[in-house]
């Protein structure tokens, strides 16, 4: 046994522009050369209904595996191409016209309105991390993995309130 394919459950916790837990699913493949693990991953994070992030990536990686036993820790990293949508709620003051029956005419009022602004970006990024492989070299394996990622692009900072013209 030296190839594995499977699915994962997990998520990401972006630190910028806003800290949030964005859970989702993963598809992966690993080729095990005894000392090095080569991996391909597809991550789909932000699938929960309350997530502001919607994220997908495709990455390739290499990890050094410690030992050759059935429990194998590994560390390494790789590169990925990712696309992300980030929603922020923006408020703005809008002038609204309404008909006033008391004066039989139109009046204007200023009202604070809210809307969702979506910033969508894509590009490449890098990640480092590690994990533990259980039941290595068997027909069923389990991996627990944590990594730190940096994408080489920025997402818009949450603005809060903008002018009507800016909106």
């Amino acid at each position: 046994v030296n190839s594995y394919f499977g699915i994962g459950i997990g998520g990401m916790v972006p630190l910028a522009p806003e800290i949030e837990m964005a859970p989702g699913l993963n598809l992966f493949g690993i080729y095990d050369t005894q000392s090095i693990l080569f991996g391909i991953d597809c991550n789909l994070w932000g699938m929960s209904s309350d997530s502001r992030y919607s994220y997908a990536d495709f990455g390739i990686s290499a990890y050094y595996a410690f030992g050759r036993k059935f429990i194998a820790p590994y560390i390494g990293g790789g590169l990925s191409f990712s696309a992300v949508d980030y929603e922020t709620e923006v408020s703005y003051v809008a002038e609204r016209e309404y008909y006033d029956y008391d004066i039989q005419g139109y009046r204007t009022s200023e009202e604070t309105e809210y809307n969702t602004y979506v910033d969508d970006k894509s590009g490449i990024g890098a990640f480092i991390g590690g994990g533990v492989m259980l039941n290595r070299a068997s027909s069923i394996i389990l991996l627990a993995e944590v990594k730190y990622f940096v994408s080489f692009f920025k997402l818009a900072e949450p603005k809060g309130t903008v002018t009507y013209e800016q909106w």
Partner: peptide
């Protein structure tokens, strides 16, 4: 700040 953070994952694989 660049878009960055942590990812965690529990994976189940079929080996052959």
């Amino acid at each position: 700040k660049l878009f960055q953070g942590f990812m965690f994952n529990l994976k189940l694989g079929y080996g052959f």
